[in-house]
Design a binder for these strands. Structure first.
Length: 852
RNA sequence: GCGGGCGUGGUGGAAUUGGUAGACACGCCAGAUUUAGGAUCUGGUGGCUUCGGCCGUGGGGGUUCGAGUCCCUUCGCCCGCACCA
């Protein structure tokens, strides 16, 4: 039996597309433009299934939009700076540049086998000096615009390797390589002033109507605008008051203690004379810097002995604690605790024996008997126990108390954001050098733009202690651009998130001697459809939004939002195996011994089949796409990625699934091999038989529905509809001359509909239909509204809401006719059982429900 | 702890505004066929059934002529995170 010769066909069409530059777009084209972008990959050297899914989804969009008459830009590049290349250099002794560019070449070959409609003429890597020189220029522009500044901030310090560790490199509080207990250390670092745009970044989320709600919600919460008040509490025997930020100034009469962050300046000052406090602060510093770690930690406080005065209750004295749950980065790094109406404050008060005074009375509650038990009351209600606030509701009390604090000059209304400025300094080699010179006499001096790029030195020693660029014998030593004296370069590099915050702009004019050409950016931006993993929902997407605003502020750009449409795909998962000790096992180590039982081949130990989890090296459940594509072809892999699972949900990789996709491609192959009817220009003028007309209606309905589903990113449903049509076509009698013209029309439509998903097979079948033009570039099929409707409709007949019959009735049938027809049905009559019909509900074209 | 989701056959998943639950597949069962393949084709496949029907969308309750869909409640799972004062 004839099999689809995918190896030959896929290679052949890939070559044809490349030779004809089918996917390269010129900028001077007056068709409407459409920019499709998938998040560019880090060149690890190996394409994984997540990539295949991501780029397949993007390719469907790109090819579909092409067929719809858009001039589509679908570029690809490399997010090429990063930690893994540096680690590879340490463990394998390969220079990061060498491994990175080698990996790019290797991955490009793998990309080629997927048959993606990518415009490779726009390719670049972020580690190219021709890319990062522009990034350095932007850094200088941001600096000039006041959007970049320097401040001290904490890092994870490995005391053995003398290096700064990423959070990822800290395992159980220890450095991953040295095993040394990590210390927090303060370093002067560069920051991008993201908070400058906090309000705008938040408000503009509303306009991103083609973004998933969940991403907008996540970003909104990350930015975290909250309205509250700054309140100054005078401290006994000290001049400076303690300033706190609170979102609940209405509960000030319920205050029972104060707490400051372990790294609050006041704590540091007091610790100088208190070894005990020093020890407490050191203990707090052992908890990781991540919020997750702080959250797991037990709530601890240390009474400083200082007492401060509640500005609303002059004779009240509140103890000041240093507490491990107060964050220096939020608000003022100090809080007042109101245990009655905040659960964490309540837990703390119970632990340290502080009083609990309720000040918000829940509705319909007796103030005499209301008490706070184990749970704080956080709801709305009437204020009580609060003098001039008594009787007010919470929002009114907030306004009133803020006004009162302002009159007393001890506080004022204040809006605070959770969003922090973006620390971009990294003490690493394989990143974009920060174009700054530190001069002993002039201070911080920007590198003049004409001296850019500040290139990374090629001769570098990695794996030694310390910051590699700082250790380089000559690189950092330069003449000060201002005074000409001896000076040193900044030896930190930029966070790689900076690289990915503007690459989508560079694609518009990738060879420009400017960061981007403004007219090209205006032609293509914003990205019409951006596609990637939801793990970037906050950081990358938010930084990119910040970057566009910062560039606009500097006069380089007019747009603020880089991505008009966003789609976040699900993960690719695969089953996992573990032994009794919970160790992950490689699928090759195990064999199936029964329906649900598995064992280790080597020693027969029992194996637990875990649930399907995201493919990852640590879980040993990674499937390499390479051999799969080799065995089944790119189209089979693509089809499997698109079938069954909705793109936004996780997809489980199964051998059976890819096998099923491959078998379906062969069915299509045979459907077309069965002999295709000669071309007929149109079936419009023909007098079609009932059977032929029904087929034609099915074809047009399928065109209509598939188009709709692709537009809505429901590719799994589009595939199902295509299968339905092809199943039907397999049953058509090709020897019937009345069917031939419609069959021709059907086959042509089918090929076009499948072409975004399985482009190689589609080109092959298109050619077999006798076309000498490429299918790529051929317009999308149009559905004819005249063929979307049926003459006969099916009415479901219910008795008391239960289905008893379905009736085929002429389109537009009225209630009386339908009811009469229903009452003739034996099943319906049996269900009514001779009872009186009380009511009949009729939904035209759908339902007739008889109520008895 | 907070926030966001999701629970539908043996499996992945379909199901307009509330209107025929299980499309399309995988798997399985029976049969056919063969150039014994990574086959292919035909039929069947939610459960129970006295063959009339009955029960079925995590559980319980409600609204409705009618609920997978709306409301209340409860259980389970997943994702994200920032103790946000």
């Amino acid at each position: 039996m004839s099999r689809y010769p995918f190896k030959d066909a896929e290679a052949r069409w890939q070559q044809v597309w490349a030779e004809r530059k089918a996917f390269e777009v010129a900028d001077d084209d007056d068709r409407p433009s459409y920019y499709v972008l998938e998040m560019f990959p880090y060149p690890s050297g190996l394409l994984h299934m997540g990539h295949v899914r991501n780029y397949t989804l993007g390719d469907v969009v790109a090819r579909y939009k092409m067929a719809r008459g858009f001039k589509v830009m679908h570029p690809m590049g490399w997010d090429a700076f990063g930690l893994p290349a540096e680690n590879a250099a340490i463990t394998k002794g390969i220079h990061p540049a060498e491994s990175t560019y080698g990996n790019i070449e290797a991955m490009k070959k793998q990309f080629a086998s997927l048959g993606l409609s990518l415009d490779w003429s726009r390719e670049f890597a972020t580690c190219d000096p021709s890319y990062y020189r522009h990034q350095q220029a932007m850094f200088l522009d941001f600096l000039e615009a006041g959007l970049v500044y320097r401040k001290e901030s904490s890092v994870n310090w490995d005391p053995v390797d003398h290096t700064v560790l990423a959070n990822e490199q800290v395992v159980d509080g220890r450095g991953w390589r040295s095993g040394a207990v990590v210390q927090r250390r303060k370093l002067a670092q560069w920051f991008f002033k993201v908070t400058e745009f906090a309000d705008d970044l938040l408000e503009a989320l509303d306009g991103l109507d083609r973004w998933p709600d969940k991403v907008r919600i996540m970003q909104g919460r990350w930015i975290g605008r909250s309205e509250g008040a700054l309140v100054r509490f005078a401290i006994d025997d000290r001049d400076d008051p303690l300033e706190v930020f609170t979102t609940r100034p209405d509960t000030l009469f319920g205050a029972s203690f104060m707490a400051i962050a372990p790294d609050h300046p006041l704590a540091a000052e007091l610790a100088e004379s208190s070894p005990e406090l020093q020890a407490f602060i050191a203990e707090c510093a052992k908890t990781g810097t991540s919020e997750e770690a702080i959250e797991q930690a037990e709530k601890l406080g240390y009474d400083t002995g200082l007492r401060c005065i509640n500005p609303l209750i002059p004779d009240q004295r509140l103890p000041i604690y240093v507490a491990n749950f107060v964050l220096m980065d939020y608000g003022t790094g100090a809080i007042f605790g109101c245990p009655g109406h905040d659960q964490r404050d309540l837990d703390f008060a119970r632990k340290y024996g502080r009083p609990v005074t309720p000040v918000v009375l829940p509705p319909d509650t007796d103030p005499e008997t209301f008490e706070i038990g184990a749970e704080a009351y956080v709801g709305d209600g009437k204020i009580f126990n609060s003098e001039f606030l008594d009787g007010l509701d919470v929002p009114t009390a907030k306004r009133t108390v803020i006004q009162h604090l302002e009159e007393l000059s001890v506080g004022e209304g204040k809006i605070t954001f959770r969003l922090r400025d973006w620390g971009v300094s990294r003490q690493r080699y394989w990143g974009c050098p920060i174009p700054i010179v530190n001069c002993p006499s002039c201070g911080i001096v920007p590198v003049p733009k004409e001296q850019l790029p500040v290139e990374l030195p090629k001769d570098i020693e990695l794996g030694k202690v310390g910051n590699p660029l700082d250790r380089h014998p000559t690189w950092k030593h330069v003449a000060c651009p201002k005074c000409g004296g001896a000076a040193v370069r900044e030896t930190d590099t930029l966070d790689t998130f900076v690289d990915s915050s503007w690459y989508f702009l560079r694609f518009c004019s990738p060879r420009s001697d400017q960061p981007f050409d403004r007219d090209k950016v205006e032609r293509w931006m914003p990205v019409d459809q951006y596609i990637g993993g939801v793990e970037h929902a906050v950081l990358h997407l938010l930084y990119s939004r910040f970057f566009c605003r910062a560039l606009k502020r500097c006069g380089h750009l007019d747009i603020e939002e880089p991505f008009a449409g966003l789609f976040t795909q699900g993960m690719v998962c695969h089953k996992t195996f573990r032994d009794d000790d919970g160790q992950w096992l490689n699928p090759e180590e195990v064999e199936q011994t029964g329906e649900n039982s598995w064992k280790v081949i080597a020693d027969g130990r029992a194996v637990t089949v875990g649930r399907s989890e995201k493919m990852s090296k640590s879980k040993l459940n990674v499937v390499d796409p390479g051999p799969t594509i080799d065995a089944y072809g790119a189209d089979a892999a693509r089809l499997f990625m698109l079938s069954d699972s909705p793109p936004e949900r996780d997809l489980e990789w199964t051998e059976a699934g890819i096998d099923g996709a491959w078998r379906y491609l062969n069915r299509l192959w045979r459907l077309f091999a069965a002999g295709t009817p000669a071309n007929a220009d149109s079936t419009e003028a023909l007098d079609l038989s009932d059977e032929a007309a029904a087929l034609k209606r099915a074809v047009h309905k399928t065109i209509h529905a598939v188009t709709d589903e692709i537009e809505k990113f429901h590719f799994n449903k589009a595939v199902a509809l295509i299968r339905e049509l092809s199943n039907r076509l397999e049953t058509v009698d090709r020897n019937d001359p009345a069917m031939a013209p419609v069959m021709r029309e059907a086959l042509e439509a089918l090929v076009k509909l499948m072409s975004p998903m399985v482009p190689h097979l589609a080109e092959e079948l298109w050619q077999r239909l006798g076309h000498d033009q490429l299918l790529t570039g051929t317009p999308w099929p149009e559905s004819d509204p005249a063929w979307l409707t049926e003459d006969v409709i099916t009415i479901a007949v219910q008795v008391m809401g239960k289905l008893r019959a379905t009736l085929e009735l002429p389109k537009g049938v009225d209630k009386e006719t339908a009811e009469a027809a229903a009452l003739e049905d034996e099943n319906v009559r049996r269900a009514i059982g001779g009872k009186a019909v009380r009511r009949v509900i009729f939904v035209p074209g759908k339902i007739l429900n008889i109520v008895i």
